[in-house]
Design a protein around this nucleic acid. Structure first.
Lengths: 128, 128
DNA sequence: CACACTGTATTAATACACTGGTACGGACGG
DNA sequence: CCGTCCGTACCAGTGTATTAATACAGTGTG
């Protein structure tokens, strides 16, 4: 569980943490039940305030990616519970549309766009 | 050129305008050389400040989507000039990665994710 | 030149995002 | 129990995003 943060990137720190945790989970580097570094530990490692880490964890919990137990620790959630597939698809569509529009704006062909997305999917770990 | 804006959506107005123009261009509803509504006209139609429209146009111009001529008007740019393909691909990758990660987080299969993106691309107008 | 239109620059009011300091309540091993 | 770890809540400060009011500058027409 190696995280790094760049405060001068413009992107808020808590979003950087969020993105990296999400990526690690999606890639299988973190699996259901795995413990995340504690709020204080990670904050100390990154030289930032515990609240900033807590905020990142809070939003990840809202999205169902992780589960925090007060006094216990924070763990990767198992995706079993949660939303109906229809709802998940509904949440995904705007993002899919954005990729389509941006890709076309960059004058990429339909095939290229699809291919790039598929490459990133493969990079996450091919199956499922 | 029909635009609508919802001030209470949380998403900044200038971003809503940006997204809709981008979508219209990507979908071919607006073509290279077409005139956009003037800053004041659109602002008046939407009951917002001209500066807000100007800001949306400004960023669209930075991205090369449109071209503004002071005193003249604002027009859809022809994508001919501009960035090298390598650069365009470089800009696209982070977005492709984000779709991949989010899609997986929503427990969609690789095929489903690719398919949803392709559907949005088709909805924009199939060729190229 | 006057005029009516264009986009642009400057400045300001306001709200909210972001981060941090600090204190609180629960879990767990001595 | 007590100390130490956990996540959490509250509050303040700083900066920046968002929108707007206003004035400026270029273009084209009669």
């Amino acid at each position: 569980m190696l995280l790094h943060v760049n405060p001068s990137t413009g992107l808020p720190i808590y979003l950087q943490i969020q993105a990296q945790v999400k990526h690690a989970v999606a890639a299988g580097a973190l699996r259901a039940g795995d413990a995340l570094p504690s709020v204080r530990k990670l904050a100390s490692d990154l030289r930032i305030n515990p609240n900033t880490v807590a905020r990142a964890y809070l939003e990840l919990e809202r999205e169902g990616v992780i589960a925090a137990v007060p006094g216990g620790g924070t763990f990767v959630a198992d995706g079993t519970s949660g939303l109906l597939k229809a709802e998940r698809v509904r949440r995904f569509r705007p993002l899919a549309r954005q990729v389509a529009v941006e890709g076309r704006q960059l004058r990429l062909s339909r095939d290229e766009i699809v291919q790039f997305v598929d490459e990133e999917l493969k990079a996450l770990g091919g199956k499922s």
